[in-house]
Each structure stands twice: as C-alpha cells, then as structure tokens.
C-alpha cells in the first residue's frame, strides 16, 4: 500500500534522496508491501509526504522506469512492474547484497566461514527466528 511507503520514507539525508526513494520502493516490493501491478503514489504526493523537491522524486521515478522496476501508463500513473522474473531477480539481488554486507562485517571481526555459519545457525535456533518462507 502506498500508505506504508509513505510512513517509511523518512530519508536520512546523508545519501542522495532519489536513491533512497528507489531503495524504499525496492524493499517494499521485495517484502510484498507493494505488489506487482500496484499503483505508486503520484510524484507530487510522494514529494509532499516526504517533503522533498518534486524534481528529486521525478528523477527517482525515471530511474526506476529505466531499470524496469516500474511502468508509467500515460494519464494513469506509475505502477510496479508485473514482470515476475524481474521481481525475483530483484529479490535475490537484494538478498545477496544483504549477505555480502553481513559477511564483510563478520570477517572484519576475524571470524572464518565455519564460525559465521555456526553463529548464524545458533542464532536461528536460539531466537526461534522464522524466515520469510517455510523451509526448516
């Protein structure tokens, strides 16, 4: 729902705002807050709610269109892509990026591969954390 997108768009202003808008939409898509084919808020609406310059929002929308994340239908608005393949690859790309960050941080602490894997398994077991999908 665009409503949730709005709530989360508290930009941190140490990174270009248009990139943060794109990231926010990507995250919302991967987490199914925005579903394929769903309409995005209008550029003006988003600019007002996030209190950013409309040109910045325009740039974000333009780039999302170029990368295939959204589609603009003239006179109707901007919609999340319905290309399942693209959305699946987006999800895996973001998951890889998250894993990469995590691994870099743990390596920086001097842990090796098996230690990292062991810690992760322990963490899941102890915290009883359930992932997004239901494998054991």
């Amino acid at each position: 729902m665009p409503k949730e997108l709005r709530v989360e768009l508290e930009f941190d202003s140490t990174r270009p705002i248009y990139l943060q808008i794109i990231d926010e939409v990507k995250r919302a898509v991967v987490r199914n807050i925005l579903t394929p084919g769903e309409k995005l808020p209008s550029q003006r609406e988003l600019a007002l709610n996030a209190r950013v310059n409309p040109n910045t929002v325009q740039r974000a929308y333009r780039e999302m269109e170029t990368m295939g994340l959204v589609e603009t239908k003239r006179g109707e608005g901007t919609f999340i892509s319905q290309d399942e393949g693209f959305l699946a690859s987006l999800r895996s790309e973001m998951a890889h990026a998250a894993v990469q960050d995590f691994v870099r941080q743990t390596m920086a602490l001097g842990l090796n591969e098996s230690e990292v894997i062991q810690l992760v398994s322990e963490f899941f077991r102890e915290a009883g954390v359930k992932g997004g999908s239901d494998h054991d």
């Binding site: 202003s13 140490t14 990174r15 705002i17 310059n53």
Partner: peptide, 15 residues
C-alpha cells in the same frame, strides 16, 4: 547540487 553534496561528502547538508 544538494544530491551531489550527499553523494560526494556522504553527509547531509545540515552535517
């Protein structure tokens, strides 16, 4: 430009 301040300096304009 505001966005290039953020990109190049990694900080907000306030910062």
């Amino acid at each position: 430009s505001a966005e290039s301040i953020r990109a190049a300096h990694g900080r907000s304009i306030q910062g």
